[in-house]
């Protein structure tokens, strides 16, 4: 249990580390340029026959988008990802809230999720294919296996560690149990819940890519494997780079949405 309380600090600190988004546009461009430059030089040397330059990779990326293979692959990858993440979000926040409010639920379920979060659950992914074949269901489940524990645990911890003085305040102004949950506990827990959702989305990306690399040769995973087998390294790097970029962009957009819609107190600051 102590273990789990620490894990939250990681999750929260991850969110708070995002301060780099405040830095000036110029520095961010410099940072990107530095990265691209280092990549370009390493590719020119070259450090390995399998290490294309940055420019080759960008050209390959444009080509993959133009010939439609990247969009097609994403269509197949994003469906189970979206479905799995949405299901995990609802199920995870629901279960986490329940466990935070209800001691019996906490006792029964939280240890399981602590084990699942600390353990390499990726080992289950091949197993999922045995049961559900290599379709959409298996991929969705792979996403959920990875995304659900962190969402449940973050929600649970946020609900359990709710600001005690606000609870007392609500009681002194005659709040009912239901009002306490709706007006104090959930709003107070929401920053950590959102951090959990972002971590869940990140884990979901890992899950869907793993599922596609390991078992179901479709989507982005298939595109990576295919170009590797043909030694089209620039195309392979472009595909991998695109999924990392997409996952990063998704997380940034999620945080932006969170601040826009749910955190009016942070908007001006």
């Amino acid at each position: 249990m102590e273990n789990s309380l620490r894990a939250e600090r990681g999750a929260v600190s991850l969110a708070s580390h995002s301060g780099w988004r405040d830095q000036s546009i110029l520095l961010r461009f410099m940072s990107i340029a530095l990265f691209a430059g280092a990549w370009e030089i390493a590719g020119r040397i070259p450090v390995s026959f399998a290490f294309p330059t940055f420019s080759d990779t960008m050209v390959a990326f444009v080509k993959l988008v133009a010939d439609g293979s990247l969009p097609t692959a994403y269509l197949s990858t994003l469906q189970p990802l979206l479905l799995g993440v949405v299901l995990s979000a609802f199920l995870g926040v629901g279960l986490g809230t329940l466990c935070g409010l209800w001691r019996a639920g906490e006792w029964l379920l939280i240890p399981v999720f602590i084990v699942l979060q600390a353990a390499p659950v990726a080992a289950f992914i091949p197993m999922v294919t045995f049961i559900y074949g290599i379709g959409m269901t298996a991929k969705t489940l792979a996403v959920m296996i990875l995304a659900l524990p962190v969402i449940v645990l973050n929600t649970y911890k946020a609900v359990r560690n709710v600001n005690e003085s606000l609870l007392v305040m609500c009681r002194s102004f005659l709040g009912t149990r239901w009002q306490t949950v709706a007006k104090i506990i959930l709003p107070d827990a929401s920053p950590v819940i959102f951090a959990g959702l972002r971590l869940g989305v990140a884990a979901g990306f890992v899950g869907v890519v793993l599922a596609e690399l390991l078992i179901t040769p479709t989507g982005i995973g298939d595109l990576i494997t295919f170009h590797r087998s043909r030694a089209d390294y620039a195309e392979m790097y472009a595909t991998i780079g695109s999924i990392i970029a997409l996952s990063t962009l998704t997380l940034i957009v999620l945080q932006w949405i969170e601040i826009r819609l749910f955190r009016p107190e942070k908007r001006g600051a």
């Binding site: 991850l14 580390h17 995002s18 301060g19 780099w20 830095q23 520095l27 961010r28 410099m30 940072s31 990107i32 530095l34 990265f35 399998a50 990726a122 972002r198 971590l199 990140a202 990306f205 890992v206 869907v208 890519v209 793993l210 690399l213 982005i220 995973g221 990576i224 494997t225 590797r228 392979m236 790097y237 991998i240 999924i243 990392i244 996952s247 990063t248 997380l251």
Partner: peptide, 21 residues
Amino acid sequence: DLLGMWVNIFSSAPLSALVPV
């Protein structure tokens, strides 16, 4: 300033996609 962005990106990126590389 220069590295923070990349460390943040990689800490939450789907690194399993990099294993083939």
